[in-house]
Design a protein around this nucleic acid. Structure first.
Length: 160
DNA sequence: GAGTTTGAAACT
DNA sequence: CAGTTTCAAACTC
């Protein structure tokens, strides 16, 4: 008996890293199906945004193949669906590339893809926006800046 | 729509 | 760890 994990459903063993992704990043599974469906209709202009559960936030990445955290889709554990990106590798057909990229990012920052990402207190380093524009991640998240932030001239201090 | 500004992410 | 560069989005015109 080999003790490799074949739970992915095909004949390929599941690496520890893949297993991590499958178990810790459940949204990938959901979106892989949607992404494949979306690929079939990518030229169909009749897509109705209001029918989609999660409003798409299309990226426009040009240089990163959507495999770095600069890409909003990739950073949120989503495949690129209906995006305006170029040479996108954040798609079901590039799993090897994706896994390698995710692995690198997790090595650098183990919390980068945490499932409860949205609940983590963000911290910013804004200097010029006064944390009053969406350049500021705290502001964009609708949360006041905290002691974790190192911003200057912060006006995002909640309702005071 | 083109160009500028911004700050996170990535890199050194 | 700090400084610098790269990047894509937010913003302005």
């Amino acid at each position: 008996m080999d003790n490799r994990d074949y739970s992915a459903g095909d004949m390929s063993p599941v690496s520890p890293f893949s297993k991590f992704c499958l178990t810790s990043l459940p949204s990938i599974g959901d979106f892989s199906i949607r992404a494949i469906e979306a690929m079939d209709i990518e030229n169909d202009e009749e897509i109705k945004p209001e029918q989609q559960e999660t409003p798409p936030i299309p990226c426009g990445c040009q240089r990163t193949h959507c495999l770095k955290l600069y890409c909003e889709c990739f950073a949120n554990n989503r495949y690129c669906i209906g995006c305006n990106c170029h040479n996108c590798h954040n798609l079901p057909g590039f799993e090897v590339h994706r896994e390698e990229a995710i692995k690198q990012i997790i090595e650098r920052n183990p919390g980068a893809f945490r499932e409860d990402f949205s609940t983590i207190q963000k911290s910013c380093h804004c200097k010029r926006s006064n944390c009053a524009k969406k350049y500021c991640e705290c502001y964009e998240a609708g949360k006041p800046c905290s002691a974790l932030c190192k911003c200057e001239g912060c006006k995002n201090i909640g309702n005071q």
